[in-house]
């Protein structure tokens, strides 16, 4: 004989379940709140300066008027150089660490070093960039030196997230492929990589977001406060959105109040647009995920 009435314990568990769920929901909402406030403030106070003209013209009158074109272009240059260097290197390193490296002391040390590298403050990377790229390799203050500095700074993020998404591919797939006589590389190319691209892209998204916003690492290595011309190649100096924001907010007198907000709004929109594109691409790939 059985009865289906809930015991006191069942009811208590159910009550607790509701509480816990509610608590976590509140935490999540509290997290979203600052983001909304920041975005709202920027949009509200900065939208008035945004126009096509603002995006496509040079700053004038001691940077108190005009647009942000050279900074926008410069940021794209810097992100581009950083990506071109750090994505192939980072993905290759992650593939090596996840798929080839034997599990030994050296591998563990390298992994630990990478995690620590991700925690190094950006100003330290900036000084490294000056020492290594500007002076030692003699690239001077240039897009190349600044982009490489950004690449070094973001490599650990790319490596860690790529390695994690490679390791999310079940080991059984690899073993099945190896037992067919496939080499490690054939297995990686045909089985592992196609099923981890979406995760790898996450790392790239993170990298882009960080790179676009960073100021310290580019300040001493390649970014200038003001330049009356556009960079023509990686050997040139350039303006950058993040540094420009810093400049118009703190370094130049008599800037109209809305201008820094407009620059910040552009910067954040750029990050959001890049993220949205990557996320859309990821979702497209995820839809084709094969297990």
């Amino acid at each position: 004989m059985s009865s289906f009435r809930a015991t006191e314990l069942d009811r208590r568990n159910q009550r607790r379940e509701r509480w816990v769920r509610g608590l976590f929901l509140v935490m999540t909402l509290m997290l979203i709140l600052p983001v909304l406030i920041i975005l709202g403030t920027l949009a509200w106070r900065g939208h008035s300066v945004i126009s096509l003209d603002f995006l496509l013209s040079f700053p004038t009158n001691g940077m108190t008027e005009g647009g942000i074109f050279p900074a926008l272009v410069g940021t794209l240059w810097l992100v581009g150089v950083a990506l071109v260097v750090s994505v192939p290197m980072g993905v290759a390193a992650a593939i090596y660490l996840s798929e080839y490296a034997p599990e030994n002391l050296l591998t563990r040390s390298i992994n630990l070093a990478i995690i620590n590298l991700a925690g190094v403050p950006s100003i330290v990377h900036a000084l490294f960039g000056v020492g290594a790229f500007v002076l030692f390799f003699n690239f001077g203050t240039s897009i190349l030196a600044a982009g490489l500095t950004l690449a070094v700074m973001t490599l650990p993020v790319v490596i860690v997230s790529t390695r994690e998404s490679l390791q999310a591919v079940p080991q059984a797939f690899r073993e099945a492929s190896w037992s067919l006589g496939a080499t490690r590389w054939q297995t990686i190319r045909r089985i592992v990589l196609p099923n981890s691209v979406s995760g790898i892209l996450t790392g790239v998204i993170l990298e882009v977001s960080r790179t676009v916003g960073e100021t310290a690492p580019i300040m001493f290595t390649g970014a200038a406060f003001f330049l009356p011309f556009l960079p023509l190649g990686v050997g040139d100096q350039t303006m950058a959105l993040s540094l420009h924001l810093f400049t118009v907010s703190t370094q130049v007198p008599n800037v109209p109040e809305a201008l820094p907000f407009g620059v910040a709004l552009t910067l954040i929109s750029l990050v959001l647009i890049l993220n949205a594109v990557s996320i859309a691409f990821r979702m497209y790939l995820r839809g084709k995920k094969k297990w």
């Binding site: 073993e175 496939a182 089985i191 297990w291």
Partner: peptide, 30 residues
């Protein structure tokens, strides 16, 4: 070359994350 002469079937079926066709065509392709 050794492994390609030896077929293996695992306890739990491991369909590779490919189409049915590609699962079977993989080894010939290799």
């Amino acid at each position: 070359a050794l492994r390609s002469r030896i077929g293996v079937v695992f306890p739990l079926p491991v369909g590779l994350p490919l189409t049915i066709y590609e699962n079977v065509a993989l080894s010939p392709r290799l």
